[in-house]
């Protein structure tokens, strides 16, 4: 009898928990990109690229036109070797335009094991094919 009474509460609790998952605000800032092609393998934290921070200071065209970053998340195989040669992030992160590559932790700042990709933010998870 007691277990039946308890069982009555299972569906609403399951429903409420699933609602919680649905309405819980995803805290990543809209447009944050996690780069983890190589970081986990190399034993460093994954890179978090915050679009919001960069677009205050640079227009999209600087990275997506001048620097040649593909628009599709995951399409850019960014390696530290390229950065030290002034490619990708290394075009600005060189202690001239912006701080240099020796500040590892400012980019390699994600929780270990994060999946690469774009993190849509609070209200949308981004388009299906990201």
């Amino acid at each position: 009898m007691a277990s039946r009474r308890l069982g009555r509460w299972v569906p609403p609790v399951v429903l409420a928990v699933s609602m919680l998952v649905l309405v819980w605000p995803l805290a990543a800032e809209y447009g944050d990109v996690v780069l983890n092609h190589n970081s986990d393998k190399a034993g460093v934290r994954p890179v978090i690229f915050p679009h919001w921070f960069h677009r205050i200071r640079f227009r999209c065209k600087v990275c997506h036109h001048e620097l040649g970053f593909e628009m599709r998340a995951g399409a850019n195989d960014v390696k530290m070797r390229d950065l030290t040669q002034g490619k990708f992030c290394g075009m600005c992160h060189n202690n001239e335009v912006a701080w240099g590559l020796e500040n590892c932790g400012l980019c390699h700042s994600g929780k270990p094991g994060l999946a690469g990709g774009i993190y849509g933010g609070h209200r949308t998870l981004g388009p299906g094919r990201w």
Binding site: L26, A27, A28, E29, D32, V34, R45, I48, N103, C104, G105, L106, H108, S109, G110, K111, P112, L114, Y119
Partner: peptide, 13 residues
């Protein structure tokens, strides 16, 4: 530190 992405243990945070 609470955004589920950044590692709160990262000293550079």
């Amino acid at each position: 530190a609470h955004d589920n992405l950044h590692d709160p243990r990262n000293p550079s945070l």
